[in-house]
């Protein structure tokens, strides 16, 4: 690739108007932020409140978003932006993957900080599942970054939306969508989160965990196997490298062993409490306070000590 356009960065949007996280990173490296939006028109209009210009690829109809990825990559490559930022979600990564393939640039995830020094984009990001951090300076092409999506931009100044006719791959048609019952989980805003893991014996026992969460005015979350595997809680409730990253004042891990992939999601919690009946569980090496004991005795006792009651 030739010299990039240092004054411009692009955000690639896959039908999700929650882009403040993307735009924030894009603005750190360039003055002008252009969004290319795959998805319905209202998404493009909402994104327009947060950026300087929107390129919208038209109504996708029954075509899956991923089919637009090559076209997104062409548009981005033609503009030669200094950075391309997308959401670290499966749909976001499909767009970023196409940009990466088109530009032969790596996709950097686990992004902590981004800056510009001596005309180069400098990125500090987590590597190897979060066990280490690395700071790199990029040269020769765009910084392609997968970041946490953030929130929906608030209304206000609205950038122009230009429609470009969509040219998706002719490879798939969505024939049916069976809607999910929305759980309305908002872990990000909670100051206390109670996470439960595979040590819980039965779905009905979630009542104990809900009772504890109510007593600490917190939200219920879980480890991945409880949301993907047994599906006792919605997928939006699991914490970790592939799930939610939270930074509450207090995180209580109940019957969670403390595997790396879970714990990176609560690394920024102020205080971590663990309840586990195995005194050698790795979680005890990663918490501030721990109770070594059976959740079925400790949780009700804790709820009572907090002045609450079991469901």
């Amino acid at each position: 690739m030739n010299a990039s356009n240092a004054s411009q960065s692009w955000v690639v949007v896959a039908d999700d108007p929650a882009v403040t996280g993307l735009v924030e990173v894009a603005r750190t490296v360039a003055d002008e932020v252009v969004a290319v939006v795959v998805g319905a028109r209202p998404v493009a209009d909402t994104v327009a409140a947060g950026v300087d210009r929107v390129v919208w690829l038209g109504e996708p109809g029954a075509v899956p978003l991923e089919a637009f990825a090559p076209q997104v990559a062409e548009l981005v490559a033609a503009a030669r932006p200094v950075a391309v930022v997308g959401a670290a979600t499966p749909a976001g990564r499909a767009l970023l993957g196409a940009v990466a393939a088109r530009t032969q640039a790596p996709v950097l995830g686990g992004v902590r900080t981004v800056s510009v020094a001596d005309g180069r984009v400098v990125v500090t990001h987590a590597v190897m599942g979060g066990i280490a951090e690395r700071t790199v300076a990029l040269e020769g092409g765009p910084a392609v970054l997968a970041v946490e999506a953030g929130a929906v931009p608030a209304g206000g100044a609205t950038a122009p939306v230009a429609e470009v006719a969509g040219a998706p791959l002719d490879a798939a048609t969505v024939t049916q969508v069976r809607p999910k019952v929305r759980a309305g989980v908002d872990l990000g805003a909670a100051s206390v989160v109670v996470g439960v893991g595979r040590g819980l014996k039965a779905e009905a026992d979630l009542g104990l965990i809900r009772g504890l969460a109510a007593a600490v005015h917190g939200e219920v979350a879980c480890s991945r196997p409880l949301a993907e595997g047994v599906e006792w809680l919605p997928k939006e409730s699991y914490i970790g490298i592939s799930g939610q990253h939270v930074a509450p004042d207090l995180y209580v891990a109940v019957a969670i062993s403390g595997q790396l992939q879970h714990m990176v999601g609560v690394r920024d919690a102020k205080v971590i409490v663990a309840v586990n009946n195995d005194k050698n569980a790795p979680v005890f090496g990663q918490c501030d306070y721990g109770v070594v004991g059976d959740l079925y005795q400790v949780v009700p006792a804790l709820t009572a000590a907090l002045g609450g009651s079991d469901d």
Partner: peptide, 13 residues
């Protein structure tokens, strides 16, 4: 590969 990455540092989080 088109992009080269120069590692400026590493850290334990």
């Amino acid at each position: 590969p088109a992009v080269t990455l120069a590692t400026l540092g590493t850290a334990k989080p």
